[in-house]
């Protein structure tokens, strides 16, 4: 069937572009305020009452 190889080549091209986009983003310098945050982590008081709502199992999405 002619469709299969064509779809696979589009998928490969798409994955290649996805990787390029991701690499561009991952190679970007972190903004200063995020660097500052990392420097300040040790000074952040950790309490037992921290909201752990985002740490639970992933929520199902649409």
């Amino acid at each position: 069937m002619p469709h299969r190889p064509q779809k696979q080549s589009w998928d490969s091209l798409i994955d290649e572009n996805l990787k390029k986009v991701f690499e561009e983003d991952a190679n970007a310098e972190l903004p200063p305020h995020l660097m500052d945050l990392l420097d300040r982590l040790d000074k952040i008081q950790v309490t037992d009452g921290a909201d752990g709502s985002a740490l639970r199992r992933p929520e199902a999405e649409g």
Partner: peptide, 12 residues
């Protein structure tokens, strides 16, 4: 990312 780092750090 900032929110994520703070949540991770305070719930380590």
């Amino acid at each position: 990312v900032q929110d994520t780092v703070l949540k991770a750090w305070t719930n380590l």
